[in-house]
């Protein structure tokens, strides 16, 4: 899987309450959720985000609640991939399960700046900052996680028998 997009960058500890505040959790409508994505820390997010954009952030991205609304809101907003220095573990699992692509790479996060254009190859674990030309290597997912992703998430993997 390959992605290319413009970077929107945030700092450390982006929590699930700022990704999608609880006051909007009375809906499961993906469009409605994405309309409020990141609105507290960045009121312009929904206006500036374009389909395919890549979110880049610091340590402990997605900390807090187990709500799947958080990765769903990000995915539905048009973000194709989140690159962070590290992810909170429930967010990490939820992203895989609902089909939001994520990558961990502290070096890339330090070097990539807001507005840069970035290309990422998930299979090879290679991130390229096309604005600066710098390339970063990261660990690709273990095979069984790649299988969940390529099968379209955990529910589909169970249905088609590929998750045992």
């Amino acid at each position: 899987m390959k992605f290319e997009g413009k970077v929107i960058k945030y700092g450390d500890n982006v929590d699930t309450d700022v990704i999608i505040p609880a006051r909007y959790l009375n809906t499961s409508d993906k469009k409605e959720l994405s309309a409020h994505c990141m609105e507290d820390p960045d009121a312009d997010f929904t206006k500036k985000v374009q389909a395919g954009d890549i979110m880049v952030a610091g340590f402990n991205f997605g900390c807090g609640s187990s709500r799947e609304h958080a990765p769903i809101a990000i995915k539905e907003s048009g973000i194709s991939l989140v690159i962070a220095k590290s992810f909170a573990r429930i967010f990490y699992r939820n992203s895989i399960n609902i089909g939001l692509a994520i990558l961990e790479c502290p070096e890339a996060v330090d070097a990539i700046e807001d507005g840069h254009t970035v290309e990422a190859d998930l299979d090879k674990g290679v991130i390229t900052d096309k604005t600066t030309g710098k390339e970063f290597k990261t660990e690709p997912f273990p095979e069984f996680i790649q299988n969940i992703i390529t099968n379209g998430g955990l529910v589909e993997s169970i249905k088609n028998g590929s998750f045992k």
Binding site: G64, S65, S66, R67, E68, I90, R93, N94, N97, I98, G153, L154, V155
Partner: peptide, 22 residues
């Protein structure tokens, strides 16, 4: 399906939060 499921570790259980799909 709640992040504070880790509470039950107090009773010597392995207990952890997950999302609704999991």
């Amino acid at each position: 399906a709640d992040s504070h499921t880790c509470t039950y570790g107090a009773l010597g259980a392995f207990s952890t939060g997950i999302g609704s799909t999991d």
